[in-house]
C-alpha cells in the first residue's frame, strides 16, 4: 500500500478516505483542474529555471559551485524553519486562517539561539548547549501543541501569543544585546566542506532529505496528510487527529531549536531581530505548494521555494540590483500562487 502512497495522497481534497487504496483515480480531481494545476506547477518551475538561466547568462559568476554552495548555505536557517512550518501546515490543513500555522517559529529560533550562546558564554560545552537549544525549541512546540489541542485555540492565535512570550523571554535572557559564541561545533558548521561548499549547505540538504523521507514516504507522513486534508475522515478512519496535530507542532518546535543552533554558527553568536525571519519563512512555506505535484505543501516543494528566494536575492546582488526588489517579486509570486490555488480548489469543490 505504501509504495505508491505519495502518488495519490498529496492534495486530493476530494478523496475523503485515505484508507482506501484500491481506487486512487476514481475520486481524484477532474481532468481540467489537473491540467490547470500542472500548468501552474510547470509554470512556476519554468519561472524558477528561467530565473536561473537569466542570472547565469547575465552574471557569469552565478553558476559556479562556490556561489551555488553559498546560496544553499545562506538558505539553511530559513529552509529549516520553513520545513518546520510546512509540517504544521500539512498536519493542520493549508487554510491560512483556520488551518495549521506556527507564528512562533522565528521567535523560537531567536530564543533557542540565545539559550545556546548564553550557555556557551557561561562555560558549558557543545553537548549541553545543543541539548538545551533543542529542548527550548521542543518546549515551545509543546506549549503550542497544548494550547491548540488541549485548550482548543486556533493555531494562528495560539502561536501568535506564544511568539510574544518567547520573544519576551529572549529579551530577558539577552537584554536585547548580541551574545557572541564560538565553539568547535559552531566553527565546524560555519566552515566550508567538500568542494568548498559551506557545511550549512550540506546540513540543509541532509535535513531536507531526512524530513522528506519521513513526511513523504512513510505511513506516519501519509497519515499526517490525511489528518490535515480531512480531519473528520481521518478521525472516522481511526487516526488520533489531536496527537498528529500536537506532533506536528512538536516537530516544528524542534526545527526552531535546530535553526537556532545554525543561526548561532552563521552569526557567530545570538543576535537580536530574529522576529524579522517570520514573514519571509511564512511566505516561503506558502510558496512551496506551487512546486509540488498537486499544489499541496511538501517538504521538497518548500526546499525549492527556499532556494528560489535565495537565488533571487543572490542574483540581484550579483547584478548590483537593490535587494529590496526581492520582497516585491516574492509578494507578487505569493499573490499569484494563492489566488491560483484558491480558484482551482473552488472549482474542485463545486
Amino acid at each position: 500500500m505504501l509504495v505508491d502512497a505519495p502518488y495519490y495522497i498529496p492534495g486530493s481534497l476530494a478523496e475523503p478516505a485515505p484508507s482506501n487504496p484500491q481506487d486512487p483515480q476514481a475520486s481524484g480531481p477532474a481532468y481540467g483542474q489537473r491540467v490547470a494545476a500542472l500548468a501552474l506547477r510547470g509554470g512556476s518551475l519554468a519561472v524558477f529555471i528561467g530565473v536561473l538561466v537569466f542570472f547565469s547568462v547575465t552574471a557569469p559568476f552565478f553558476l559556479t559551485i562556490g556561489n551555488v554552495g553559498n546560496v544553499l548555505g545562506q538558505s539553511a536557517i530559513a529552509g529549516v524553519l520553513a520545513i518546520g512550518l510546512t509540517i504544521v501546515v500539512i498536519g493542520g490543513g493549508s487554510n491560512v486562517v483556520t488551518g495549521g500555522i506556527d507564528l512562533s517559529l522565528a521567535a523560537n529560533m531567536g530564543l533557542s539561539a540565545a539559550v545556546y550562546a548564553t550557555l556557551v558564554q557561561a562555560g558549558y560545552g557543545d553537548p549541553v548547549a545543543v541539548i538545551a537549544a533543542l529542548g527550548t525549541g521542543l518546549a515551545i512546540g509543546a506549549v503550542n501543541a497544548a494550547a491548540i489541542t488541549l485548550a482548543g485555540i486556533v493555531p494562528l492565535l495560539a502561536t501568535l501569543a506564544v511568539m510574544n512570550v518567547v520573544a519576551g523571554l529572549e529579551l530577558v535572557l539577552t537584554n536585547n544585546t548580541v551574545v557572541p559564541a564560538s565553539t568547535e561545533l559552531l566553527l565546524a558548521l560555519s566552515a566550508s566542506g567538500p568542494f568548498g561548499i559551506p557545511v550549512l549547505a550540506y546540513v540543509l540538504l541532509g535535513f531536507t532529505l531526512l524530513v522528506a523521507a519521513v513526511v513523504q514516504f512513510t505511513p506516519l507522513g501519509l497519515r499526517l496528510y490525511a489528518v490535515g486534508e480531512f480531519p473528520e475522515a481521518a478521525r472516522a478512519a481511526g487516526l488520533p487527529v489531536k496527537s498528529f496535530v500536537a506532533g506536528s507542532f512538536l516537530a516544528s518546535g524542534l526545527c526552531g531549536g535546530f535553526a537556532g543552533i545554525l543561526s548561532v554558527s552563521f552569526l557567530s553568536g545570538s543576535t537580536t531581530g530574529a522576529g524579522d525571519m517570520l514573514l519571509p519563512v511564512v511566505v516561503t512555506a506558502l510558496l512551496g505548494s506551487v512546486f509540488s505535484r498537486r499544489l499541496v505543501p511538501t517538504i521538497t516543494g518548500t526546499l525549492l521555494s527556499t532556494l528560489f528566494v535565495g537565488f533571487l536575492i543572490n542574483g540581484f546582488q550579483l547584478l548590483n540590483i537593490s535587494s529590496t526588489l526581492v520582497s516585491g517579486v516574492q509578494g507578487l509570486l505569493i499573490l499569484l500562487v494563492v489566488s491560483a490555488t484558491t480558484l482551482l480548489r473552488r472549482q474542485e469543490n463545486v
Binding site: N67, N70, V178, S263, L267, Q317
Partner: peptide, 10 residues
C-alpha cells in the same frame, strides 16, 4: 544580521 553575513559571503 543574517542578511549582512549572507551579503558579505557573496
Amino acid at each position: 544580521d543574517g542578511k549582512l553575513v549572507s551579503q558579505l559571503q557573496t
